[in-house]
Structure formats: C-alpha cells, structure tokens
C-alpha cells in the first residue's frame, strides 16, 4: 500500500501527524501523475491502433513514433482561448469537466495497480466505490447539457444520460453476480477467489454482459451515440473549448483503462499467473483487454439510439437478472 509506504518513509524524520499529512500529499502527487499520464499514453495507443486498423500510420512526426503527439495536443489546448457564452450557467459549465476528470481520477486512487499491495488508498469494498464513480456520470452528463444553455447540447445530454442509465443497471447486475460468487466486494479477495479457475471460464455470459455494458457507460464506440462524430457535432461537449475540452479526454481514457482493469480483475484472474511476477501478468492482461476494447471501435458499427436503449432494457437487463439468479443458485449449491 503506497500511503503506508510514504508514512513509514516520513515517520523516521517527522512527528506522526506531519507524516500522516505528508503521506496524503505524497499519495495525491503520485496518483495525479499517474492519472495525467494515462490519457497521453492511451490517446497515442488509440490513434496508432486506429491508424493500423485502417491501414494508415497514425501520428508519426511528433517525437519518436509520434509519442509526443498528445503532449502537443495538450499544449495547444492549454494555449487556446476560453470561449464562454454569456447565456451559460457559469458554475455548472466550469464544474462539469473538473468533476468528471476528478471522478475518473478517484477510481485510479482506489483500484489496485497490479499487485495486492500496490494500491494508493486502501479501502474495503473498493469495487462498489469504483462502480459509484462510474455510475455518477449520467447526472454529470445531464448537467453538462444543461449548463451550456444550448439546445443541441441539452438533447445530447438526454441521450447520454438515457444510454448510461440503461446500461449501468446491467453493469451492476454483473458486479453483483461476481460479488456473490466471491463472497466479497473487495477486488483482492475476488482475485484470490479465482486462483484455480478464472471467472471468464466460469461465467461467460456475465463477461459478455460486462464488456457490452462497460463499453456503453464509457461512451466508447460502437456505443458512442451521444457524440456520434459522423452524425452529430460533438454531442454534449459542443460548447467546451480549450483545456476544459481536454479534461474530458482524461475522463474518457481513465474510465476506459479502469474498465479494462476491472475486466481483468473480475474475469481473467487479475495478477494470478505463473513464472512472471504478479504485476507483469496483470499489465500484460490489461494491455490485451484495452487493445481489444479499443479495436471494437473500428470493427462494429453504431446502433441507433432507440436500438441502443432497446438492447439495454429489453435484452441485456433481463438477461443479467436471469444470470444473477443462476449465479445465486451456483453459489448456494
């Protein structure tokens, strides 16, 4: 646990209270650095992968292999002018990007980063915490649409909120079935319960449900209906410019990474593996899952909004309830 590590480091030189404060600050700095680097790296991977799938190169010239492309994007976004309409709801407009990115960052703070001790803030039931941070977003999306005082943003906000609400129930059902089987909502114990057999082999339907639902609530393609860039203009982000727009990228990519990590933890045995150290196993699995989630974007086409809601409420939710009941029977007998 990283906060304990900082505390022990500082306790030798400082009184306990200062060491406590110092460990909090240290955890905050480390976590922020991790969170800020995720979109830079994942954004590059996303662009390169999309290029490769479409037989293009992706960014090439900026830095080695185009690695600095996203740094250039961030610098540009920092240097751009803020446009704020007079008619907007100023508080909400400024609050939403910060809230979304902070919620995304908080997930990185409570999720284990690849081995049982490697966690920034250790709390029990961290799976439920992560679910809450994921599930708060429809409210924020609605507020974002409201705050911009723009009819298109408002409509898009409705679409986004409807989509996320439809799918996060499915996600919750999938999480509950995992929790019932493992007997805990703590990620470490869920991983330990998969020591002999992975949940992916045990609960394939839950895996499929979880992947679909997590794609939908992170608003990644093929479920990026609220901001379908070929049909709409920017969705509920329409009025945001400059670094406020950049903050949404942090939220997007961190949520994508957290969802991939959750899939590995809940279904693919987390850090369980042979020969290699546990974090190596975990990051190999996470890389594969993340690439899979990204490549789905260029493979499947986008459903309409009504089809999307239909799939969510009429098929996935009943299926997940049936699945939950079945898992309950398995757990009892």
């Amino acid at each position: 646990m990283i906060s304990t590590f900082f505390y022990n480091l500082l306790a030798g030189y400082l009184p306990p209270i200062l060491a406590e404060i110092g460990s909090v600050v240290g955890v905050f700095i480390v976590g922020t650095i991790i969170v800020l680097n995720i979109p830079l790296l994942l954004g590059w991977v996303d662009r390169k992968l999309s290029g490769r799938i479409q037989s293009r190169y992706g960014p090439v010239y900026t830095g080695p292999f185009g690695l600095l492309q996203n740094v250039a994007d961030v610098i540009k976004l920092l240097g751009k002018r803020f446009i704020t309409n007079q008619s907007i709801d100023k508080l909400i407009y400024d609050f939403i990007p910060i809230a979304l990115s902070v919620l995304a960052a908080l997930m990185i703070f409570v999720i284990p980063l690849g081995s049982p001790g490697l966690i920034l803030v250790s709390i029990p039931y961290n799976l439920l915490f992560i679910y809450i941070f994921l599930a708060l977003s429809p409210l924020l999306v609605l507020l974002a649409g409201w705050g911009q005082n723009n009819k298109y943003a408002m409509l898009s906000g409705f679409r986004g909120a409807a989509q996320i609400t439809a799918y996060e129930l499915t996600l919750l059902m999938a999480l509950i079935s995992i929790g019932i089987l493992a007997g805990s909502y703590d990620i470490s114990s869920i991983v330990n319960s998969q020591h002999t057999i992975w949940n992916a082999a045990y609960l394939p339907i839950t895996l499929v449900l979880f992947v679909i639902a997590s794609l939908a609530i992170t608003e990644r393609a093929p479920f990026d209906v609220p901001e379908a860039s070929q049909e709409l203009q920017a969705g509920w982000k329409i009025e945001y410019s400059g670094i406020r727009y950049g903050l949404f990228f942090i939220a997007e990519y961190v949520r994508l990474l957290v969802v991939s990590m959750l899939i590995v933890y809940l279904f693919f045995g987390g850090w369980n593996g042979v020969y290699l150290p546990d974090y190596a196993w975990f990051w190999i699995k996470t890389t594969v899952v993340t690439l899979f989630m990204m490549s789905l974007r260029w493979v499947y086409n986008r459903p309409r909004i009504d089809q999307l809601i239909d799939i969510g409420f009429k098929w996935l939710l009943p299926l997940s309830v049936i699945n939950l009941i079945a898992v309950g029977f398995i757990a009892v007998y």
Binding site: R47, G51, R56, P59, Q233, A234
Partner: peptide, 10 residues
C-alpha cells in the same frame, strides 16, 4: 493524422 491533423469531427 500523421501530422497531427485529427478530424475530431467536432
């Protein structure tokens, strides 16, 4: 996209 000209479509 090689030069960083990304069609965000926004």
């Amino acid at each position: 996209d090689r030069t960083g000209t990304l069609f965000v479509g926004d």
